[in-house]
Write a protein that binds this DNA or RNA. Sequence first.
DNA 1: ATGGTGGAGCGTCCA
Length: 252
Amino acid sequence: MKIATWNVNSIRTRLSYVKMFLVDNGIDVLSLQEIKTEEKNFPFEEFSNLNYFAYVFGQKAYNGVALISKSPFKEVKKNILNDGIARTIEGQIDDLTILNVYFPHGGNLGSEQFFYKLEFYKKVKNYILKNDLINKNFILLGDFNIAREDIDVWDKDLLDGTIGFMKEERDALNDLISIGLIDAFRYFHGDVVAFTWWDYTGGSFKRNYGMRIDCIYVSKSLVGRLKNCYIEKSLRALDKPSDHVPVVLELI
DNA sequence: ATGGTGGAGCGTCCA
């Protein structure tokens, strides 16, 4: 089973690439962030034509998450933090609980958005604990907007203290995963420097000035089923790409 | 300090 996550930065602009990615990689479940559209404008038909189901929590212009899957989800919960912001969608499929989160960007240190981001991390952690998801076959994936380790950024000294790599943020992410979540990419590639996001500006992709901020975390019960985890970097080199690329998890 | 690029959707805001 192949489960992927991708911040597409507008589903309508990236639709052809998303369809290509699903087919080329034989993806079973795709978790999308920043679809940037309301549900009423989501291209449901394009996915049903490919024999995929789509579950959408959308919002006008900003945010927006979705789950795309070959077989139907048994249950889907949107808005799990009850904040009305289209950043969370969770579903049950087979024996898995999959929680797709678009974590806040965070603005700058000390800004209102920065504290919102740290609070958001606590709320997701509490939600997982409250619902005992950590003791289920649980997958937390999405755009975390935080690089956790030094090897998750292109220059740890230059980026020290900047958004996405501040101590307070890394502490928040470490605190979240301390409840028993395993970084699937790191499980297979312990010391590999690899990124999932490159800024649009300044030729960042060509220079490989990136960060690994899109991740797939699994609960301990799934460790024995991990088969592979990879980053589909080639999609960043296409014309009019998203600034993020997909991460793919293969489960036995 | 600014601007560098991109998306939504027509004002700017957000990343």
